[in-house]
Write a protein that binds this DNA or RNA. Sequence first.
RNA 1: GCCGACGUGGCGGAACUGGUAGACGCGCUUGGCUUAGGACCAAGUGGGUUUUCCCGUGGGGGUUCGAGUCCCUCCGUCGGCACCA
Length: 833
Amino acid sequence: MRSFDFSNFETKWRAIWQTKKQHEVSEHDPRPKYYCLDMFPYPSGSGLHVGHWRGYVLSDVWSRYQTLLGKKVLHPMGWDAFGLPAENDAIKKKNHPKLNTQKNIETIKRQLEDIGAMYDWSREINTTDPTFYHWTQWIFLKMYERGLAYQKEMPINWCPSCLVGLANEEVVEGRCERCEAPVTQKKLKQWVLKITQYAERLLGDLNHLEWPEKVKVMQANWIGKSEGAQIQFQIEDRKGGHHPISIFTTRLDTLFGATFMVLSPEHPLVLEVCASSDLKMVKAYVEQARLKKNSERVFKEQEISGIFLGVYAVHPMHQKKIPVWVSDYVLMDYGTGAIMAVPAHDERDFKFAKKFGLEVIEVVKPPHAEHRTGQAEGHRISHPEGHRPEGSVYEGPGILIHSDGFTGLDSTVAKQKIIEALAQKGIAKATVQYKLRDWIFSRQRYWGEPIPILHCSTCGEVPLREEDLPLLLPEVKTYEPSKTGESPLSTIDSWVNAKCYRCGGKAKRETDTMPQWAGSSWYFLRYASPQDRRVPFDSKAVSHWLPVDMYVGGIEHAVLHLLYARFFTKFLYDIGLISFQEPFVRLFNQGMVCRRSEKTGKVEKMSKSKMNVVNPDDMVRRYGTDTLRLFELFVGPPELDAEWNDNGIIGVHKFLQRAWQWVLFYHEHPVTTCDEAVLKSLHQLIAKVTERLEAFKLNVVVSAFMEFMNEVSRFQKEGKGGDLSALKIFVRLLAPLVPHTAEELWEILGNPTSIFQTSWPVADPAYLHEETLVLVVQVNGRLRANIEVNRKCSKDEIIEQAKCHDQVQKYLVDKKIIKEIYVPHRLINFVVK
RNA sequence: GCCGACGUGGCGGAACUGGUAGACGCGCUUGGCUUAGGACCAAGUGGGUUUUCCCGUGGGGGUUCGAGUCCCUCCGUCGGCACCA
């Protein structure tokens, strides 16, 4: 019998697939299309570890399964090679980013090829290739044309370590997402994309997506929609002047509880209305707050700060005067930068009021307050008026009190009535607020797409013409970031100084580059026509292949890449270039591969910095690609994090060898008729594997195969084997998981063409049902016996048979059966007394 | 603080609409084969009893003939957001 010489046949089959161009697909192929995409990797210097493999194996198993189901599967791969990680790696190794990136791509490509995935390498793309970023720049110009890209001088998140500005999405807990240095604020002129214009659609369209609920929730929270109202107050300064000021609130029902007003330190009215005696102090406070980073403004009780401005605002309902304060707990960039403070019904306002001795008026009573009074019910406690202990605030909806004509109304109704009343006076309107900010699109670094804009001394901002694209990234000697916050490009005079094509005068090029996310926001479209020089993507090809049917990648992109790609897609739809509004119909987030630390005993994410990576190359050498593929699946549910265990791989390796031997044995010792028992097991396997594949439960697909092997090994000892057609079915079932082994066995079984040109086996229902069933018999819910009955037996016959069973009789003597529960094909339960 | 996910043997994990808890694999135990080890094969492996039951899915309570699964509550772990008015 031929040994399981995986190292020979695995390379052999990869070569055959390549020469036969087996994974290249075309629009002319009549089969229905299926687009299965991996999030393309950035070519880091450290190469792939077994954690990276996992997602690629999952998507490949899925792609191959779809192929066997009769679809033509587009499964491309490329490189997200611009951006900080690539540039930092190059700087570390003192290489030019371009050369360094090329080198890294070579390594990773070789590692990816080891997976044996059905990538169509003829469609390989690279975001740093001018033929690609030509179109990234082109899309930017289209956005510019429609007013969606604009420049703005603004304080931005600045990473002092990476020396670059960051988008809000790239700041995690006040630190740089990449290097974890604390982020500071820096005022810079920035290019910004108006993603906020798409907030409502980005939120609403989430509903139609087959995405993990978790990701949808994260995006929805990030967009952060809240519905409320803007209402206008009047601030009276000390000279008797009136200053209208708008505040945003979602709790208009608490309007009568507004006992003071708070402005953000950045609010323009602060210095304008401030009583002159306090001006110095207020100025100092404003200055100090401005210097604080947002992340430092975290609300801690001992750090509550604020200053009374010495002026009052007029309450729009009862015209009483309420004091106006400034405090850094109110943010300028949300709502209007000013709030009405309702200390009785807002935790933060309450703490502020307590600290400065401000008035607290309760205006909303919880519904059914009478049942709750005095009882501890969670954190929010209601108390009879005047007996509210310190620190308790009711933040929920309820029934209004102390609210003049609105007293007695329910919160929802009250909101409606109050806004109507105020709207009549022209001082309120319903509004919607989003947390989503516009996308800061400038990076002060070298390794990115140059922004195709000129700054002309006479014409101002001038976008490049389409025919001037691509605007090539110039060769430079020093590409390290500058300390000043200017891009390294600004040091190249020959590049910066340009001629304005409009007036012929002197102009300077924009020196910032685009962020890492630019290319990945549309790359999935480019795969449809990767070589096209005329257009970013051929519209026919795109409408043929897109949208992506299945997108596989890590959860870390839940709000970054996935939100940006959705935004770009919607924009391209709006300008009529594509006919769909969502790029990824279905999303799958694979779990990470972790490892238990020997020191701490904790399970840690696999990463180079933790020195706990397992190199797939070693595993492939020892056990083969197919074994590693199987283990990546078997290691646990695909969507959950998994713990890597070196011993575990032996189990799947043994299985694969046994499967190999079983097929070869019956190939060399053919049986003329397949044993019934084997057929039954086989068809049950088809059913199980199909069902579990469809549900993406790939870990239990592997167990199903193992159970089958255990069964047929027993049959083998009894002399029961499988005939050629059974062997063929088995090998076809294995094919998506272990494509090399399946191809090799398929060939040995006498088939001249690839196994992936066959079809997915279908289970014969005749084999799925046993004629006899094993039923469980319980007495009072406890298992007492198993009985074997014929499928055709009636309920009464079965119950009679159960009663007669010795083990059951024992529990029935001297007892009265008060109930008989019969669940067809499952169990019988006698309830006795 | 808010939102979300999860909690099952020594370990990774199975268990469809409530219906035999622990599939499958690792590890471990015993035996076979072998000069030996490895590999392979066979049997066993939740706990307690010792031959017949009892207890067991983070704790407590509930619904049900029957709960890992449903409801309430508490505890713990992980992830996301975080002064968002």
